[in-house]
Simulated assay, not measured.
Amino acid sequence: MTEEQQNRDDLRCIGCGAKIQTTDPKEPGYTPQSALEKGLKNNELYCQRCFRLRHYNEIAPVSLSDDDFLRLLSQIRNDDALIVYVVDIFDFNGSIIPGLHRFVGSNPVLLVGNKEDLLPRSLRRSKLRDWLRQQANLAGLRPIDTVLVSAKKNHQIDYLLEVIDKYRQGRDVYFVGVTNVGKSTLVNQIIKRQTGIKELITTSKFPGTTLDKIEIPLDDGHQLIDTPGIIHQHQMAHVLSAKDLKYVSPQKEIKPRTYQLDPEQTIFIGGVARFDYLTGHHAGIIAYFDNNLPLHRTKLGNADRFYEKHLGELLTPPTKDELKEFPPLERQEFHLSEKSDVVFEGLGWITVPAGTTVAAWVPKGVSSLVRRAMI
């Protein structure tokens, strides 16, 4: 094998990290030979998948399994590194990587809450940091620090870099997180700060954009490493069409919506979820969802007929064209002894007072749960 062939065998897409190949369009890293030559010439080598995602917002399926992603992450425990664990504040529970401590070994973990700009400004950020730390503790993590940022708004990035430099102590830095938490957007902001290069890494609302670890050299000879996003199959993003992903990826500050409910009333969250207020006092509940996601209130006794009649029209998403692919809603009941958030994973939550019984309906395969109220 010639040196040139060897070098080409080591080429990787700078957008997703996949190994570049020119033989199989269905496999990760494919790029046409002509595009390969152009990319090498311009020192900007993207696979065809990343190129089309960046320029046309088109997504192509890939053959990597969850096990492939987990295997890549498992390499971290053998390195001496700082782990920057990025979570989506708006979808914290959907951001949890089960058993993360097994992947990081004895390496310290810095918890970064992204998308803090989506939460009401009235919420004290010190209180939010405490809430995140407590939730991380419940998940078995003991982060050395917690930082709130908005990668999209470029907020607190400089401060995050200071904290990273404080804790990394001359080591490599691994960025880890599940899909859709904005991890690659955050890394892009850091690269821009360090080099002036904009959007080096491919970012998208679609799950699984980063396919392999991407290594960015630091000034002291160490590296900043962006790892693949772990795909949670129970995320709402997996049951929505591409055009409806906007509802699970809000772009503006969430405006809480308050409803005064009596027992046996129902709120439909578009057509993708449902909340039943079963027992309790007349009370105000507060809904936190994308501002454009329609909510409809009706009586519990009429809810099933209402859903059957209006799904795909008044209750959207999904639209009528998408009903064949949309899974049925499944019910889970909760008895709440303290003020709690009823979470529709990947979509939002409803804050409910203590002493109530409620039910959450979500598409089959998507999770609902109860947690201590964030706000």
Score class of each variant (00 low, 15 high):
368 S>K: 01
221 G>V: 01
244 D>L: 03
358 V>P: 00
122 S>E: 06
331 R>I: 13
45 L>W: 10
44 E>C: 05
161 L>Q: 15
160 L>D: 12
329 L>A: 13
116 E>N: 08
329 L>R: 04
50 C>D: 11
168 R>P: 01
22 T>W: 03
174 Y>C: 06
302 N>A: 15
42 N>F: 06
144 I>L: 10
42 N>D: 14
375 I>T: 04
147 V>H: 04
232 H>R: 14
352 V>D: 03
66 D>M: 02
165 D>T: 11
148 L>I: 04
344 F>P: 00
76 I>F: 07
192 K>H: 15
340 S>T: 12
286 I>D: 10
282 H>I: 10
371 R>L: 04
170 G>P: 00
343 V>S: 06
366 V>S: 05
233 Q>E: 14
185 T>P: 01
304 D>P: 00
122 S>I: 06
79 D>T: 10
348 G>H: 02
157 I>T: 08
228 P>H: 12
233 Q>G: 06
320 K>N: 01
227 T>H: 08
142 R>P: 00
356 T>V: 12
133 R>G: 04
283 A>S: 11
169 Q>C: 11
143 P>C: 14
287 A>H: 02
157 I>C: 11
367 S>V: 08
369 L>E: 09
231 I>Y: 04
321 D>L: 12
34 S>H: 09
3 E>N: 04
210 T>S: 10
222 H>P: 00
279 T>K: 14
286 I>R: 09
280 G>R: 04
196 G>Y: 07
25 P>D: 14
117 D>G: 05
85 Y>F: 13
336 L>P: 00
54 R>C: 02
25 P>G: 14
73 L>C: 02
92 F>I: 06
313 E>A: 15
298 T>L: 08
347 L>A: 15
246 K>L: 13
315 L>W: 07
318 P>R: 11
150 S>D: 05
15 G>I: 05
339 K>M: 10
306 F>R: 03
356 T>R: 10
227 T>I: 06
65 S>W: 03
94 G>E: 03
206 F>C: 01
44 E>Q: 07
9 D>F: 11
266 T>F: 06
74 S>L: 04
74 S>W: 11
349 W>G: 09
14 I>W: 07
221 G>C: 08
330 E>L: 14
58 E>R: 01
338 E>L: 14
19 K>P: 00
278 L>Y: 08
201 I>W: 05
224 L>M: 15
363 P>T: 13
183 K>I: 02
147 V>K: 02
253 E>K: 09
255 K>M: 14
195 T>Q: 03
360 A>W: 02
63 S>N: 07
10 D>C: 09
7 N>H: 03
265 Q>L: 03
128 L>H: 02
195 T>G: 03
195 T>M: 02
217 P>S: 10
47 C>A: 12
198 K>D: 10
58 E>M: 08
35 A>R: 10
176 V>C: 07
317 P>A: 12
155 H>Q: 07
41 K>E: 15
335 H>E: 15
370 V>Q: 05
314 L>E: 13
95 S>M: 09
344 F>E: 04
315 L>R: 01
102 R>E: 15
129 R>W: 03
331 R>D: 11
247 Y>M: 13
